[in-house]
Design a protein around this nucleic acid. Structure first.
Length: 111
DNA sequence: AGGGTGACGATCA
DNA sequence: TTGATCGCCACCC
């Protein structure tokens, strides 16, 4: 049904909201969890709309490489990096260090 | 109705 | 290893 489209966004929000403090995840991980592994871009698109909701910690969502590709979409240029560093995550040049250590997998946490 | 874009991911060279 | 290209699917013009 047409409502499915909206449901897709809601699902992305539901997962993003559950990302704990000091943790990060990737678009592909969320997409895969939603059953749209090949639509990682759609997750990013949903995140773009999430900017309307201050409940979505979009700064905790990065690409698979741990690179803050979406930082440019934030209010400031380095706001995203600042937020992550504020959570105890080391970020150098928009690149999260020790990504594996801070990675949050919805498949494991939302098992 | 058709074409282009995009906060990605995987594969190929 | 890094860099470049294709594929994906929803949304906008």
């Amino acid at each position: 049904m047409a409502a499915d489209n909206q449901n897709f966004f809601e699902r992305v929000y539901a997962v993003a909201e559950q990302i704990p403090f000091g943790k990060v995840t990737s678009y592909g991980a969320i997409a895969k969890y939603l059953g749209a592994a090949r639509s990682a871009r759609m997750v990013g698109w949903a995140m773009n709309a999430s900017h309307l909701k201050d409940e979505i910690p979009a700064h905790r969502v990065v690409n698979r490489k741990g690179l803050l590709t979406g930082k440019h979409h934030f209010d400031g240029t380095n706001l995203m990096q600042q937020l992550l560093e504020n959570e105890g995550i080391v970020v150098i040049d928009s690149q999260i260090q020790e990504l594996d250590k801070h990675f949050w997998d919805p498949f494991i946490e939302l098992e």
